[in-house]
Design a protein around this nucleic acid. Structure first.
Lengths: 209, 209
DNA sequence: TGAAAACTGTACCGCCGGTACAGGAGGGGA
DNA sequence: TCCCCTCCTGTACCGGCGGTACAGTTTTCA
């Protein structure tokens, strides 16, 4: 009931931090129970095995991720009716949120799962795949709303452009973590924002003379 | 001598494929020696421990990576003297090379190391950091050559733009692997190419009337 | 207050990373 | 020819870890 959920959440919190620093293969159940202050039996009461822990971890991460994007972009839509302006504002808000993270972005569970694929079952791989497809749909939807109003200045595929948001985020996380430069990720999001802006906004032509 | 190097290379080949599919923590030495057809003692003759295997793996990957970029962009420079055109051509060649990979990109060791950081020593982390910084310098150098000739149409930081090449590659690999869509990575590189093109090339203004 | 939920404790298995060390095959130089 | 060095093999062992099994205990809430 209530208490069980709390313990489960605590295990997931500890596991998430560990997995993002050491991957699934590098994270031992023994260390998780040591840090959580629970016994081995207690752990296996909540999760049948490591695979089920991973499943719960991934699902929770995806849900949280979706919630954050929902919040950011609905806030952006509240501030302007223009689809382009609200998308650009959303990217700005996202970059601010990322640069406000005290120790930089801790890492993405989707990427961690991606680099551990072979040891997970089909269900986890499908969940991961669907998470990325959901990103594509989310950003694709917003971009299609823009395309209806603004002409594209270069012939680009909208889904590929939507994927670029995910690419830059995933890649930016890897760069930020590897370089130990927390701000790199936020900067990359702003670079992407510049790209979107250029793709849709008319160029200001200075009058001659 | 000759024989030793050959065995060492075989171990590294097997290890690289395994690590890219399962991460370092998920790859066991036992499975490596089974697939290589060597004994455990033989393995530890070549590598003192897993950390040293990782070191060799990472260094070899980085060297190979650098070699590929050297080839591609020097080939691009051979075909045109214009720094922008050669950079754009290089990105085109890179995307073609990536889409020609039969099973898609197998993954990046730099990213794998990034998501296993805490279990490696400082030396490996520094090597990894330097690899990313080398990418920044490489693409930054090329972009600075462009900036000398072409005006930037938006005020962007050249190093951040250089980082975007790495971001899109790393992120594109994650997307491609997760989606099991080998072509996504190549498409992302071409999207980036469009961005660079827009940033530097003058917009064609159609005459009115 | 009583049943279900949420654990603890103990004992055990097999795999894995790693250590230690002895020994052997094979080639190349003195 | 002999010896030494490289490149391994074989054997034995250790402790940690993932996982199983199951009996017993405490906590929670209806």
């Amino acid at each position: 009931m209530r208490k069980g959920e709390e313990t489960r959440t605590r295990i997931l919190d500890v596991a998430e931090a560990a997995v993002l620093q050491k991957g699934f293969g590098g994270t031992s159940i023994e260390e998780l129970i040591a840090e959580t202050g629970i016994t081995k039996s207690g752990f296996f009461y909540h999760f049948r095995d490591k695979n089920e822990l991973a499943k719960a971890l991934l699902n929770r991460y995806i849900e949280n991720d979706e919630r954050i994007y929902d919040e950011i972009f609905s806030r952006a839509r509240d501030l302007t009716d223009d689809p382009l302006q609200s998308f650009l504002l959303g990217l700005k808000l996202l970059s601010e949120l990322l640069s406000d993270l005290p120790n930089g972005h801790p890492g993405c569970i989707v990427a961690t799962v991606c680099y551990y694929e072979r040891l997970f079952d089909r269900e986890i791989q499908e969940t991961n795949r669907n998470a990325v497809l959901a990103w594509r749909r989310r950003f694709g939807r917003m971009l299609r709303d823009i395309v209806e109003v603004y002409p594209l200045r270069e012939p680009v595929d909208v889904d590929q452009l939507a994927d670029m948001v995910s690419s830059v985020l995933e890649g930016g996380i890897v760069l930020s973590k590897t370089l130990k430069e927390p701000n790199t990720l936020a900067e990359q999001v702003l670079m992407l924002r510049t790209f979107v802006k250029m793709l849709f906004l008319p160029v200001v032509v200075m009058p001659r003379g």
